[in-house]
């Protein structure tokens, strides 16, 4: 089968990749990681195999771009707050979502990543493990711990 026009890839997978980036980096830095992910994907797209899982491919690129972002954040001399105080500017209206991103930011990185790639990126644990290293079982455990922690911090505070 021939490849879809890249625009169709952006339309179809753009929102998922954005949620993954937001879960790892918070709403603002997520924009940078998102555009770098799709720029990198656009470059490599003609060489992508016709039977490839496009979403898994994009989540893998997003993972690397998010790591780059985290490293460059860590290198900055003055620590910058991960989450700025003006979420609505970034298209995340509604306090509920902001609280979710805040709760995610409080998780250890590994838990954040496994939760993001599995629950938001739709990857099975075997593929999450391939991206992060380690076993699928370890990825599943980290995600379960992450979800348990989110239940404590995020769901407790919301009206259910």
């Amino acid at each position: 089968m021939s490849q879809q026009p890249f625009e169709a890839i952006v339309t179809e997978h753009g929102p998922t990749v954005l949620r993954v980036c937001r879960a790892i980096l918070g709403p603002v830095a997520a924009d940078d990681a998102w555009s770098e992910t799709f720029l990198s994907a656009l470059r490599a797209y003609p060489d992508l195999g016709p039977d490839s899982n496009v979403q898994a491919w994009l989540v893998t690129i997003a993972h690397r771009k998010a790591i780059d972002q985290l490293r460059s954040q860590a290198r900055r001399p003055v620590p910058v707050a991960v989450l700025p105080e003006e979420p609505s500017r970034d298209g995340v209206p509604g306090s509920g979502q902001t609280e979710l991103w805040t709760a995610l930011m409080e998780l250890p990185l590994k838990q954040r990543q496994t939760v993001a790639y599995h629950y938001l990126g739709g990857l099975p644990y075997a593929e999450v493990a391939e991206i992060l290293g380690g076993t699928p079982q370890a990825a599943r455990r980290a995600a379960a711990d992450g979800i348990a922690a989110l239940r404590q911090t995020y769901l407790k505070g919301t009206v259910r």
């Binding site: 021939s2 490849q3 026009p5 890249f6 625009e7 169709a8 797209y45």
Partner: peptide, 15 residues
Amino acid sequence: VLEQLATRVSPRVLR
């Protein structure tokens, strides 16, 4: 038509 362009010219198609 966009799919045809992706196949015959290049898949790097953007609006």
